[in-house]
């Protein structure tokens, strides 16, 4: 992964969240406070602004991950801002300050992002959260089957929405939806849907 792919990925993520703003808010209205789309959209548009300023192009992957995280921390708010923000800051240490990173490093970094979210949010697979899409995806990338990274990433990107859809039948164990208990069943977790968009954009950015 190089800096340009990183930025293309996050710009795509911001655009996709913006395009699904109403869907994400709608999902969140059912089992949360109805602002997941608005919050993520606000933060991701700040991330885009950061890179459009007239200054030397950012080529430092570590710095890109870190500043993306710090921006999300101070602009998204709520659990998503806290989880995405701290994960991007903490995992940034895995990335090089110069040049591109190898596929192995990229996978280790993606794993660190998800591990940070798991630690901070104390969520596991099956809790009806973003982890249901993120952990399953990272584990496929880690396992190395099929051997081609781009094939694995393709699988992850094309399955991500199904994994998000599968949160519908789950009972929320973490986050505000957990207060609803069994009444959270029948609704897709909004964080899992935005996480699916994130995988799709990574696949797109890496393919270009």
């Amino acid at each position: 992964m190089n800096a340009e792919q990183f930025m293309r990925w996050w710009i795509c993520f911001g655009q996709e969240v913006h395009a699904h703003l109403d869907d994400l808010n709608e999902l969140d209205r059912a089992i949360g406070d109805g602002d997941h789309g608005t919050n993520m959209d606000r933060g991701l548009s700040k991330v885009r602004e950061l890179w459009s300023l007239p200054k030397t192009p950012v080529e430092n992957l570590l710095e890109l991950s870190k500043t993306t995280g710090m921006t999300l921390l101070s602009t998204v708010g709520g659990a998503s801002g806290a989880l995405w923000g701290s994960a991007m800051v903490q995992a940034s240490q895995k990335l090089p300050v110069q040049g591109t990173c190898t596929t192995e490093t990229q996978i280790a970094w993606l794993d660190a992002i998800v591990a940070s979210m798991e630690n901070r949010g104390k969520a596991r697979i099956g809790d009806k959260t973003m982890i249901d899409v993120l952990r399953v995806g990272v584990d496929i990338l880690i396992k190395g089957d099929p051997p081609s990274f781009s094939e694995r990433l393709n699988t992850v990107a094309s399955s991500a929405r199904e994994w998000s859809e599968a949160t519908r039948s789950l009972i929320a164990k973490r986050g505000r939806a957990a207060y609803l208990g069994e009444r959270s069943q029948g609704h897709v977790d909004p964080g899992s849907f935005s996480a699916a968009l994130w995988w799709e954009c990574l696949n797109r950015a890496m393919g270009e």
Binding site: G78, A79, A82, G85, S86, V89, Q90, R176
Partner: peptide, 15 residues
């Protein structure tokens, strides 16, 4: 007050 307040507090503390 709610879970995300605690997440934000932990982030501020660590970062």
């Amino acid at each position: 007050d709610l879970g995300s307040a605690i997440l934000s507090a932990e982030n501020a503390k660590d970062l």
